[in-house]
Structures are given as structure tokens and as C-alpha cells.
Computed example of a mutant assay.
Amino acid sequence: MTRTNSNRSSRVVLAALVVLLAATVPAAAVSVTGEDVPEEAQVGTQISATVTLEELYQNPQSEQWQLSGATELTDVSWTVVFYDQTGSQVNLVEPTGQSFSGLDVAASDGTAEVEVRITGTVPEVDSYTYDPPQEFLLMELTRGQQGGASSTVDAWRTHHYTETSASARTAIEEAGTAIEQARSAGANPSDARANYDDAVAAYNDGSFDVATNLANRATQQANQAQQSQQTQQLIIYAVGGLLLVGLIVGGVVYWRSQQGPEDPLG
């Protein structure tokens, strides 16, 4: 009888835990189902990006909420298109400025999907960093609820550059590759590594001509170190080969010397 009551109590506790866990596991958030976002862009150029949002009324479950957006692009134009479940357009809004807020996303309007498009000019770089590459906020979308609560749907950041910063970055990347190749060949390109580190520091300081020159020097030093290492290895292989030939010849001569004179009579 005691065992039956114990089993029944265990089942009750287990069922309660299942209900509790189900209540604490959040539903899926607004889903970003499509992205067309550039990973990098040159300062001063005009770029565009598009994202698509679905599963609009979950986490928290709500039949209506407000969409907000922000960007660091300049000369910005937004286009927010609302679609129903059949893919038909039900609304279109074109906010202005670097941010907008308060766009209603409502199930009562038939909205099942929202597409956000943005076009603008890539901003100047405030500070440069080689690793990780400097970025700017291309777009951030936020979901707001009545009462002031809000949460970020997602944010997209893009690497921005100038012609000179891009050239310096390319030179530094080539230097890093040359240094790794030299190390793989058994060389120790310490001078190249020192110039590489100085090139990165110059890049971070915005001194791109200096960074490029230092990186090119590092590449040359790394290549020279690799060639020197390869030459030394060839010399070692050659010397080893000569020693081996010498040993073989010496062995043959010694073997013949141990055979004695041949008997002319057989």
C-alpha cells in the first residue's frame, strides 16, 4: 500500500514538473527569415539592405506590437512593407531619418510578414581597429510592447573602410600569410613579426601609409627567412647525400681490398 502511494506521489510530482517546465520555456521569438545585408562597404558609398520578419506574434504572445528601427547610415530612406499570409501587400510605410518607431504590427490587419528595406550612405569611421575590423550599425530592429517594454529583434553591423585603409589591411593580411608560411617551413621570422605588429598598431592609429610600408617590409622579411631556411635545408640534404655517396664508395673500395689478388690459374 505504501509503495502504491509512493508511485502515485512520484507521478504527481513529475506531472507538476512537466507543467512548470512547459510554462517557463519561452515561445519562439520574431524570426528573421531573410537577409540581404552587405558584410562590408566603402565610406561615402550608397548601400541597401533588406530583412524579412515572420512569426510575429510570439515571445511574448501578443496580437499587436510596435516596430522600431535605427541606423548609423546617413541620407537614409526606409521602406516597411506588410504582407498577409498569402503574400499580398496590406500596407507600406516609408519613414524618414536615422530612426523610426511606433509602426503597428497587428494580427487584426492580417499582417503575417514584414519586410524592412533601408538605403543610405556609409558613414565615416570614428576609430579604426584591425582585429576585429571596425564596423558601424547598419540596422537595428526593435519590438515594443504596450507599457514601454521592448526587446531587440536583431542588429546588423557592417565593416566600413576607405581606399587607403583597405590597402593597408590587404598588405597586413599578406604579411600575416607570409609569416605563417615561413613558420611552417621551419623559419623563425622574428623581424617580420615585429614589423607586422607595428603595422597593425599603425593601422589602428589611422596611419595607413606607414602601416602599408611596414607590412610590405614584413612580407619581404618573411619571404627571405623562408628562402634562407629552404636553402639551408637543401645544403643539409646535399651534404647528407655526399656523405652517403662517400660511405658507399668507401665501402665498395674496402670490400674490394679485402678480396685479395685473383689467382691467375683460376
Rank of each mutant, 00 (worst) to 15 (best):
Thr121Phe: 03
Val253Ala: 15
His160Thr: 11
Val249Arg: 11
Val76Ala: 06
Thr2Trp: 02
Leu20Pro: 00
Glu262Met: 06
Ser127Ile: 04
Ser165Gly: 07
Ala112Asn: 11
Ala16Leu: 11
Asn216Ser: 10
Tyr130Ile: 00
Thr111Phe: 07
Thr219Glu: 13
Gln42Met: 14
Ser101Leu: 07
Glu124Ala: 14
Asn195Leu: 14
Glu163Ser: 14
Glu72Arg: 08
His159Ala: 13
Trp78Val: 07
Asn195Lys: 14
Ala22Cys: 14
Thr158Asp: 08
Leu141Trp: 00
Ser184Lys: 09
Thr79Leu: 12
Pro133Ala: 12
Asn91Ser: 09
Thr231Phe: 06
Thr142Met: 03
Ala215Ile: 05
Gln230Lys: 06
Ser10Phe: 13
Trp156Gln: 10
Glu72Lys: 10
Ala178Trp: 00
Gln98Asn: 14
Ser184Ala: 13
Gly246Val: 02
Thr164Pro: 02
Asn188Glu: 15
Arg143His: 07
Ala202Asp: 12
Asp75Asn: 14
Ala29Gln: 12
Leu17Arg: 07
Ala155Tyr: 05
Gln229Ala: 11
Val114Cys: 01
Gly97Asp: 07
Ile47Val: 15
Asp36Gln: 15
Ala194Lys: 12
Gln66Glu: 09
Asn5Phe: 10
Pro60Thr: 01
Leu21Gln: 02
Trp156His: 10
Arg183Thr: 09
Leu243Glu: 05
Glu63Ile: 11
